[in-house]
Amino acid sequence: MLSDDELLRYSRQILLKQVDIEGQLRLKNSRVLIVGLGGLGSPVALYLAAAGVGELHLADFDRVDLTNLQRQIIHDTTAVGQHKVDSAMTRLAAINPGITLVGHRAGLDADSLGEAVANVDLVLDCTDNFAVREAVNAACVAARKPLVSGAAIRLEGQLSVFDPRNDASPCYHCLYGHGSEAELTCSEAGVLGPVVGLVGSLQALEALKVLVGFGEPLVGRLLLVDALTGRFRELKVKRDPGCAVCGSSRG
């Protein structure tokens, strides 16, 4: 059930026929893991908390640095030196005290990552590290949990949804099995704040679509964002039957 306060708080999205009260209840009963609380994870966490996702699991081993504040909008100057998880939890609790926040402040190894993924309904990869992305993808395939993956660097971004519950869906390894072309980090190549904000907001949107069950999530599609020209392109991505991560598990 939704309380009177919840009906009022979420009234604008409940008005949408794609959401309605049933969809809002689905969000309230959902558990989501956000891996990375930087430029992408900031808008993801803010929008999912505001939308009423009932339980947010926040994973990041890093601390807030002054150089983060140009784009990582969940943190502020007073949080410099704090664990990003603690900074984010403070902000999110202020935005929506009605949700549950679970923090993971240490780096997730294979076992703890597998457990963290198994305990949620959906995962958002908001990191900028290829090895971590591969590990998160493998854990999602093993647990059959949908993964919303975003990336941004310089003035470019990309986004896709990988859903192991869908036999036609590729996984992250199908697309980037030989390494990502964006292995440079923002600290090395630079990035404009609104670019990560845009991609992170789109990740949050895709997560809401998957959790509630409306629209067409970006499964089997890779969205490319060119912020320099203001253009979007879409590429179709097929599952690789011989993929080392998802191929054998789906027959």
Rank of each mutant, 00 (worst) to 15 (best):
D4I: 07
R105F: 00
K28P: 14
A182H: 10
A139N: 11
S160V: 08
S201M: 12
T229P: 13
L208G: 09
R250L: 15
S149R: 07
Q72P: 07
V212D: 06
E22C: 11
L147I: 10
L48G: 03
L205R: 14
A49I: 10
D60Q: 03
G36W: 00
L184P: 03
I74A: 04
L48W: 01
R221G: 10
S249M: 06
I99N: 10
G150H: 04
L224H: 14
D109Y: 02
L8D: 11
V141N: 06
P43S: 05
L218W: 02
Y47H: 07
L27G: 05
L56G: 01
G200D: 05
S201E: 04
D20Y: 03
S187K: 14
G177V: 01
Q203M: 06
P194W: 03
Q72L: 04
H57R: 09
I34K: 00
Y47V: 02
L27S: 09
R250M: 14
G54E: 01
V80F: 00
Q18W: 00
G23K: 08
R91D: 03
V64R: 03
V32Y: 04
S169G: 01
D62Q: 05
S169T: 02
E216T: 14
S187G: 12
M89Y: 05
A131P: 01
L224N: 12
L159F: 00
C140D: 04
V35T: 05
A106N: 14
A143C: 07
A79F: 06
A51D: 01
M89I: 10
R91H: 12
A116C: 15
E156K: 15
D62H: 05
V80E: 00
E156C: 15
H75A: 08
A50F: 07
D86R: 08
E115T: 15
Q70E: 06
E181L: 11
L7W: 01
A50E: 05
A168V: 12
L56N: 03
S169Q: 03
L159Q: 04
A49H: 10
L16I: 11
D226H: 15
E183C: 15
F162T: 03
G36F: 00
A227D: 13
R105W: 01
S87K: 09
L33W: 01
F61H: 09
L15D: 15
L8P: 08
N119I: 06
E134R: 15
I73G: 10
V195M: 13
D121K: 11
L202D: 01
L222H: 11
G177Q: 07
V219M: 02
D65Q: 13
A168K: 13
V245H: 12
G98L: 12
D121S: 06
G107E: 05
L159G: 04
D240R: 13
S248W: 13
A227Y: 12
S169K: 06
E183T: 14
K28E: 08
L16T: 10
L33F: 04
D86K: 08
D121Q: 06
